[in-house]
Amino acid sequence: MEKILVSDQYAPDSLSERAEFGDINVPVVETALQHVNLRQVATRTGSGHGVSFSELPVTGLLVLRARSERAALQSALQTTVNIKLPDTLQSEVSVSSGSHKSVYCIRWVAPDEWMLSCPAQDAFDIETRLRSSLGGNSVAIVNVTGGYSVLQLSGQHANDVLKKSTVYDVHPQNFSVGKVVNTTFAKAQVMLRCVSNDEYELIVRRSFADYVWHWIQVASKEYGLSVSRS
């Protein structure tokens, strides 16, 4: 059998300039869309600004799980990062410091599951502190920092792009600021948060990030897409 397979490329605008690295002891961090070189794309786009897109730098992400011992998790969070679990479903609690908004943010995922984001370099430390604070309580904490790409979509047509991409009702009347939902995004899945009016955060699985980026380019075409530096 003649086996035909294609040499595969990423989505358009793919291979970027290689990051230089010399000393292997200085680890090079790569986001999921590093290959796209969004910084370079950002300088090139100027066509319309209906939608603005950016990929955040690697963000610390911890999955928190608790069922009967939710209270223990709550108090451990309060002592370690001074943050509460969201009281209502599909919502978030954010803690900011100084000029940074949402240094810590806890998003509701399921009745026994939350996603905590934090600066990447703090993730391990927070996990350790939470664990020690929790002691023998039956709570799970999983560091998934590498597993996701955190994207931002904003602009007056950002909501239209979402309407093309997800089955969830993203009308502002239903999807208001501070709401977080897990839903579909084209043929991938997303944890979607309404950050402010016309500004959304998309947390997608790392391996799907290129697909999502490609999809957003196509869906934004009629509105004009600009890529912002992150």
């Binding site: 479903l89 089955v167 969830y168 579909t184």
Partner: peptide, 12 residues
């Protein structure tokens, strides 16, 4: 019953 919302079949 967990998310306490109506959602589209494609999520299920």
């Amino acid at each position: 019953p967990y998310c306490e919302e109506h959602r589209e079949e494609e999520e299920f």
